[in-house]
Design a binder for these strands. Structure first.
Length: 542
RNA sequence: GCCCACGUAGCUCAGUGGAUAGAGCAUCGGUUUCCUAAACCGCAGGCCGCAGGUUCAAUUCCUGCCGUGGGUACCA
């Protein structure tokens, strides 16, 4: 219906040129008596035209060509709102469309032919994924799904670093655990990786081979072994919530492929770097940043900024139209430097969309669990999936605005598992499937012949809700706000459950019953598609 | 100190500058001879952190303050 008004107003603008001066936004009023869509243009124009807003509204309405088959009523209300009320028969046509388009209802080709890269998770293989990584993983995958529905060709990428100090400590931690298994009395350093998972890996190694060389030069071997085990584990965890990556990008290849040297040379040529105190500095103060920062330490080792810039250049070179980076707020400080570098080297940094999600606070037994991979004290994503299931995990991580802190109360998610919103949505779907099974037994079919019989307020409300699906989807896509879709689906499910209690199908007369079946099938499709985008299952029975 | 995000009902949180600020949970009460009660209906619950400003209109935009979290390294 929004589409219809937008097109109509495009035409109207040639008669009333001042309409071109403002952005026309049709919004769904929160009070039903205010119509189906409202336009606030008259108020916006009042000042510009120095005229009374209600008078302008009247002029707009007078010039608007009303198609009686589509629009029921136009009203001017309040300070100058123009409220449009649509003909129920017109609105009901969406039931046909949804049934026809079926599982592609909601897909668009707005960005057809465009390539997108979504980089997420990107945890280094030093331990199992935690709950915090879980939020990142689910948001990233859902954003990728949304982009796909908007027509993008999307690649999911995981960036990692398996070199450096962190990984050496990991390797040495495993070496010491291995020695402990051999019965040696080892004083395990406090700043080493304390987690049980490394003891388990040591046990596995020990079972395979009891005489591994454990001299100082063996750290590399232990590192490799730990990395391989941990990475396998990470991939299994991700598989458990339905996430797969197209690419795993190893930071190390940036060195092998001379990308790092390349960046260094280009910065130097552009006079954006200089040497001081034996280190190489990045002249960020020339790039609207606060201070210059070190990119190569006096030890010769690069700081994280250098490979990050080199990595982003490869993203540009690979020809994506849009580059999405997702990370937690603890990394929020790193990206301005990287973007400044990218821009200074001549790339369009506008293509990079940085999404920063806030932390997850995990509560268990009423207490906040502090997360640290290094310390043994963390809850793994695996444990969480095992406790509450993949669907609940995905939904909980996506149901809130990504810039809000998220409280994940494990006891609550588990204990109230039959009262949480995930099941509310899924139950609506299962209920419809059940209805369809029953009506089939009764010999009733879906029919578009008598959709005008769907006049009950609950039916009308349901139809109008379905009209909003694409709008909500577009907002979720354009604003990178997946929680929009979750909120919408809850509203749709509520509208369905209300319909279910108000309107029966079996026993309501063949014509009405068959129209209602068509309606309910459409709802099923929308819920299913929504759940699919969110990465959840749509159960047929519960 | 400085930078970023957040602050909405008892709790967890929705809310593209618009009309009477919403939902779930928790509390209390009601609905099943009938397609799944994992549902529906009702009661109650609010200085939208505080103070200014912009606007015809501010929970929404701007400034300051307070509170929470994160960042502020030749750690990533």
């Amino acid at each position: 219906m929004k589409e219809y008004l937008e097109n109509s107003f495009d035409k109207l603008a040639s008669k009333l040129p001042y309409l071109k001066e403002i952005e026309l936004t049709f919004s769904v009023p929160n009070i039903a008596s205010h119509g189906d869509l409202a336009l606030n243009a008259a108020m916006l124009l009042a000042k510009k035209l120095k005229r009374n807003p209600r008078e302008i509204a009247q002029e707009i309405v007078d010039n608007f060509e009303v198609d009686k088959n589509i629009i029921d009523k136009i009203e001017i209300a309040g300070p100058g709102f123009i409220n449009f009320l649509f003909k129920p028969e017109f609105l009901a046509n969406i039931i046909n469309r949804i049934n026809e388009e079926d599982e592609s209802f909601g897909k668009s080709d707005r960005f057809k032919g465009k390539k997108a890269l979504v980089e997420f998770v990107s945890a280094n293989p030093t331990g199992p994924l935690t709950v915090g990584h879980g939020r990142n993983a689910v948001i990233g995958d859902t954003v990728a799904n949304l982009l796909e529905w908007a027509g993008y060709d999307v690649e999911r990428e995981y960036y990692f670093n398996n070199a450096g100090r962190q990984m050496r400590v990991l390797g040495d931690s495993l070496r010491l655990r291995y020695l402990q298994l051999k019965g040696e009395d080892i004083d395990f350093p406090e700043d080493y990786y304390q987690g049980q998972y490394l003891i388990d890996i040591a046990k596995k190694l020990y079972a395979e081979n009891k005489s591994v060389d454990t001299g100082q030069s063996s750290i590399e071997f232990f590192k490799d072994f730990a990395e391989k085990e941990i990475f396998t584990e990470i991939q299994n965890t991700l598989k458990g919530i339905g996430i797969r990556f197209d690419n795993y990008f190893n930071e190390h290849t940036l060195y092998e492929d001379k990308k790092i040297d390349d960046v260094l040379n280009r910065l130097k040529e552009s006079n954006l770097s200089y040497e001081k105190d034996n280190a190489i500095w990045f002249r960020l103060s020339e790039l609207e940043q606060e201070n210059d920062k070190v990119i190569v330490k006096s030890t010769g080792e690069p700081t994280y900024r250098l490979p990050d810039i080199a990595y982003h250049l490869t993203k540009f070179e690979r020809g994506y139209d849009i580059i999405v980076d997702l990370f937690g707020s603890d990394h929020a400080a790193t990206y301005p430097d990287v973007l400044a570098g990218v821009k200074a080297l001549g790339y369009d940094e506008q293509k990079v969309k940085v999404l920063i999600h806030q932390f997850v606070t995990v509560l268990e037994n009423g207490e906040v669990v502090k997360m640290s991979t290094r310390k043994a004290n963390f809850i793994t994503l695996d444990e969480l999936i095992e406790k509450v299931g993949s669907d609940v995990v995905r939904y909980f991580f996506i149901m809130r605005n990504i810039s809000s802190h998220l409280n994940f109360d494990i006891d609550l998610a588990r204990k109230q598992s039959d009262e949480n919103p995930v099941f509310y949505l899924q139950y609506a779907h299962a209920r419809i499937c059940s209805i369809l099974r029953m009506t089939e037994e009764e010999g009733l079919k879906s029919s578009f012949q008598n959709l005008e019989l769907l006049t009950h307020p609950s039916e009308q409300n349901l139809i109008k809700k379905m009209h909003q699906f694409k709008d909500e989807l577009n907002v979720a896509i354009d604003q990178y706000e997946p929680q929009r879709l979750a909120n919408y689906l809850e509203e749709l499910a509520a509208a369905f459950h209300k319909f279910y209690t108000d309107c029966r199908i079996i026993g309501s007369g063949k014509e009405l019953a068959e129209a209602r079946i068509a309606l309910v099938k459409a709802v099923k499709i929308v819920i299913k598609n929504g759940l699919t985008i969110l990465g959840l299952t749509a159960p047929e029975r519960m």
